[in-house]
Design a protein around this nucleic acid. Structure first.
Length: 349
DNA sequence: GATTCGTGGGG
DNA sequence: TCCCCAAGAAT
């Protein structure tokens, strides 16, 4: 009897797998941590963060008792910061509600903060050898090609179709290796633009390749709308200290620190800017300020054009709600958005 | 259920 | 320069 799809990709995987640290362990904590870090993130970008976290927090207990600002600072630069907040909260839940042990089933795992269908399937199969298929961007791509599934992968109602398709193909005794092989195939050979079909272990049976449709699949319809925002950051320094504050909910960078901010839907003229400034500092009649060149910062749904305004306030009493003074050492330790961190590194430290 | 959450790299 | 998108989840 011919080798099954699962058998073929698993034997290919065994010969080509990259020996990443989270693949050389069965510790659910390490597997969970790696999966959270790798959500919407490439291995090359996430790997140093994984090493850093494991060194700082060897066990889920170490992570649970850490201060949240420290965890956010550790996460700085990786993006999607709700992952860090949920990571921390999840660690505390595992310690308090599960006696320090991760739950083992697909359903129970999804009750944890930051753990959805993909991550639950990954932990259940990698750590506990459960027969649950993972469905991520790679799986959508590989299966849509292998089976010629021309349904929109951006539409959540089509998730089940791929989940069930993979469930039909998953290995009975090596579900973990099957899932990893499927993702690795998508991450390496079965790439978005130029799939390396000549190297593919299942090219012979790939329906898209047979029909010459590799690059037409998968179908993804949704396009993101991008919003433009203009940030005028106020750099206010007194006695070697800088005024900074923690960002609140319902916007980007929740929990991270930045400077007092004037936001606008469009570029401000000099009079407009000065009017804004004087409304923030009503008591100051005249003060000097210096406006930086604009810095573009691109997010998934927003393009931010930022200006940094250094303000000379002399010895005036300055108080802005929600902001406090931090010296250089303290500023260094605060979790900050990339945009802010870069500016500080280039102009202050 | 459509939207919103970062950042960096590749084509 | 622009577009895509990468081991998704929460709201």
């Amino acid at each position: 009897m011919a080798k099954s799809f699962a058998q073929q990709i698993i034997s290919w995987y065994k010969n080509h797998m990259r020996e990443l640290p989270w693949r050389l362990t069965e510790d659910p904590y390490k597997i969970w941590l790696s999966e959270i870090i790798l959500q919407q993130t490439r291995v090359a970008q996430g790997l140093p963060y994984y090493e850093k976290f494991i060194a700082k927090y060897p066990t889920v207990h170490d992570l649970a008792v850490a201060p949240q600002d420290e965890v956010l600072r550790m996460w700085q630069g990786l993006g999607y910061y709700s992952r860090a907040r949920n990571l921390h909260s999840c660690a505390q839940s595992v310690v308090e509600d599960y006696d320090g042990h991760f739950p083992e089933t697909y359903e129970e795992l999804q009750k944890l903060k930051g753990v959805g269908k993909y991550t639950a399937a990954a932990i259940a199969s990698f750590a506990f050898k459960k027969k649950v298929p993972v469905v991520d961007g790679n799986v959508f791509r590989v299966l849509s090609r292998f089976l010629v599934i021309d349904k929109d992968i951006a539409d959540p109602k089509n998730f089940k179709l791929f989940f069930e398709a993979s469930k039909e193909l998953i290995s009975e005794d090596q579900p973990d290796l099957y899932n990893q092989a499927l993702m690795e195939l998508g991450a390496t050979l079965c790439s978005v633009s130029k799939p390396a079909c000549l190297l593919c272990p299942v090219a012979e049976e790939c329906q898209a390749r047979i029909e010459g449709k590799q690059t037409e699949l998968p179908i993804k319809l949704k396009k993101v709308k991008v919003r433009k925002r203009y940030f005028y950051y106020l750099l206010i320094e007194q006695n070697e200290k800088l005024l900074m504050g923690k960002r609140g909910p319902n916007d980007i960078w929740q929990g991270l620190f930045d400077f007092p901010l004037i936001e606008s839907k469009n570029v401000l003229s000099t009079p407009e800017l000065e009017k804004e400034l004087s409304s923030i500092f009503p008591k100051q009649k005249h003060f000097k300020y210096e406006l930086s060149n604009s810095v573009k910062h691109i997010l998934t749904h927003q393009i931010i054009e930022a200006f940094f305004i250094s303000i000379d306030m002399k010895k005036a009493q300055i108080k802005i709600n929600g902001y406090s003074w931090y010296d250089e050492g303290e500023v260094e330790e605060l979790p900050k958005p990339r945009l802010v961190d870069k500016y500080l590194k280039e102009n202050f430290y």
